[in-house]
Design a protein around this nucleic acid. Structure first.
Lengths: 109, 109
DNA sequence: TCCTCATTTCGAGAATTATCGAAAGATCGA
DNA sequence: TCGATCTTTCGATAATTCTCGAAATGAGGA
């Protein structure tokens, strides 16, 4: 995952309603949820939620498909995995964030 | 990690200069780097960088200590680990983001 | 104490993001 | 085709975030 992708995924998740929507979609699994149902669950107007879903989609974190009159959104699990991998690799010094397994410098403190 | 903490950590990382600064600090290890050196490395004015470092500190992702006239910033690895754990637990359906290991719903597609 | 260095805080303007009602697009059933 | 349903797009406003020079703070050395 490139830095810009990571940045857009982080921005997408860094907002109350979007994080909540994404968690809901993760819970819903690959079956996903229709936009209206997400809006209702979060108590956000449809037009506002639509704006947020578009951002999540733009970042590649969710996918959209039509089913009858409904647009179903579902979490993109591999994109999320990509973000977690990026953070682990680039922001944790590889391995885990265990301060003992830090790369450069000796691990004082 | 609570949702609000995760949200503030995500917001902190969701900005070009802050993500770059954090990665630099991760590379630097527990020894950290003085503020001025980070600003120079990123090509950002001191006052701008100071603003960003304050956000990272507010989110708990970096720590500050004084050494002579310099303020040394260093990455907080356990906070970062906390964020990765939050994402894995709440946004990946636990386990990993492997679509095969998704909770509710059957894993079609 | 005075001067210098390292950094932050202040303040104001620019840029971006969020909000939401109203109108427009799609799709389906009658 | 018409009407109902589900959702997005538009447009305008509010709110937040970013930027950066100038001034203030804090520490050390002469």
């Amino acid at each position: 995952m490139r830095t810009n992708q990571a940045l857009s995924a982080l921005s997408a998740l860094a907002q109350e309603h979007r994080l909540a929507a994404f968690r809901l979609l993760v819970q819903a699994g690959p079956g996903g949820l229709p936009a209206g149902q997400i809006a209702e669950a979060l108590g956000v107007p449809n037009s506002s939620l639509s704006f947020h879903l578009a951002q999540l989609a733009e970042a590649g974190l969710v996918e959209q498909r039509r089913e009858g009159r409904s647009l179903i959104y579902s979490a993109n699990f591999s994109a999320m995995q990509g973000l977690v991998n990026f953070l682990t690799d680039n922001c944790c010094g590889g391995e885990s964030c265990d301060p003992a397994s830090v790369p450069l410098e000796d691990a004082r403190s």
